[in-house]
């Protein structure tokens, strides 16, 4: 890892009271990025939103194992590549089955994954060693581009 790269792993109890804390950490963290041509405040807000949606999804829908009752988040920034991973130990779901919301029928739920997809370049959900991981990537525009 380069000295300017960022790697942060956080584990908190699976409770919605931690959403603002983790979201705010992400907003602060982006200011550690040394070379970024875009609006850092806007990037921080987007990460706050993406993390809030992803973590709330785990808390509300995915069970966590009794042995490891924590919500784990991993934020990794290497060069111009940003990756966020949110882990769960639930039964999992098929991300491809999650359609965009129907904008005509005013459903109260079902916009979380849509918001994440709008703000990140790629979103993937797959099995990992101890459950499942929602993996989200975004390319950061380097300074001077």
């Amino acid at each position: 890892m380069n000295q300017t790269d960022i790697d942060l792993q956080i584990a908190v109890p699976p409770h919605t009271r931690y959403l603002s804390l983790i979201g705010n950490i992400a907003e602060l963290l982006v200011h550690e990025i040394k070379e970024y041509a875009g609006d850092l405040d806007l990037l921080g807000y987007h990460l706050n939103l993406v993390l809030t949606e992803a973590m709330a999804n785990v808390i509300q829908h995915a069970a966590l194992s009794e042995q490891d009752n924590t919500l784990r988040v991993h934020i990794h920034i290497e060069g111009d590549q940003l990756c966020i991973r949110v882990y769960d130990q639930g039964a999992g779901f098929d991300l491809k089955e999650v359609q965009s919301p129907d904008f005509e029928t005013l459903d109260e739920c079902g916009r979380g994954i849509f918001v994440i997809r709008q703000l990140m370049d790629s979103v993937d959900y797959h099995k990992c060693a101890d459950g499942n991981v929602l993996e989200m990537h975004r390319k950061l525009a380097p300074a001077g581009h």
Binding site: L19, G23, N48, T52, E108, R111, V115
Partner: peptide
């Protein structure tokens, strides 16, 4: 700050 559940409410 508002997320999708806030919009839902």
């Amino acid at each position: 700050f508002i997320d999708s559940s806030g919009l839902g409410a």
